[in-house]
């Protein structure tokens, strides 16, 4: 093949590869990840984010990682959090650093955080949870930055997740069971911020 032809083929290939991007804009279910706090709903997020990586650079907890191809081409180089590995401490520095508002700036204050942060919501698997098995634990409750508002414990420290949970993942990070009995169910697909 002539080099010129090769070049044109490359360009055509690049254009063709970009076409199914939109179809992939919704994340695959197999990858459970959170967007950093203050992130817009997934489709808006992907069109706003410029992949500058500043959110990760200001994260003092090194919770923010960056996608390669795991979540499809559209998510390339976008930030994500796997709470079991390193959870968000809700310092809100990423929203402040984000130049495009893909991560909204949110004040570091309980009221504002509960209102605006929707990374996901914790769910307890009672068949794994120690407290629900009768062995008093309560670690998730102790780890929660929004105790008694986002999570409440009953008899034997059995956890109940409440509506105010923002999905930071500190409970999942700290759960002493393997596999973890409490997980964050991501909330990418919500319609309103």
């Amino acid at each position: 093949m002539q080099r010129r032809n090769f070049l044109y083929t490359l360009i055509a290939g690049a254009v063709g590869a970009a076409a199914p991007l939109h179809a992939r804009a919704t994340p695959r279910v197999s990858v459970r990840f959170l967007r950093p706090p203050g992130a817009l709903p997934e489709d808006d997020y992907l069109s706003r984010c410029i992949r500058c990586g500043k959110c990760g650079e200001v994260c003092p907890n090194r919770a923010i990682k960056f996608f390669r191809f795991e979540n499809g081409l559209a998510s390339l180089d976008t930030p994500y959090i796997v709470p079991r590995e390193q959870a968000c401490i809700l310092c809100m520095k990423c929203g402040e650093a984000c130049p495009t508002g893909a991560l909204q700036p949110i004040e570091r204050e309980a009221e504002a955080i509960m209102q605006n942060v929707r990374m996901g919501r914790a769910r307890v698997d009672r068949t794994i949870c120690l407290s629900w098995q009768g062995k008093t634990c309560g670690v998730c409750y102790r780890a929660c930055p929004l105790q008694d508002v986002a999570i409440r414990v009953g008899r034997l420290e059995q956890p109940h997740v409440l509506d105010a949970c923002v999905g930071c993942g500190l409970c999942e990070r700290s759960c002493i069971q393997i596999p973890q009995a409490i997980r964050i169910i991501p909330d990418h697909q919500r319609k309103v911020v």
Partner: peptide, 26 residues
């Protein structure tokens, strides 16, 4: 059309900045 920032993936200065960060900090 795709609703995704495509320049970020093919613009060398953006790539260099990111990759240096990945290599050192990530």
């Amino acid at each position: 059309i795709s609703g995704t920032m495509v320049f970020a993936a093919v613009y060398p200065p953006a790539i260099i900045g990111r990759e240096i960060y990945y290599a050192i900090a990530v």
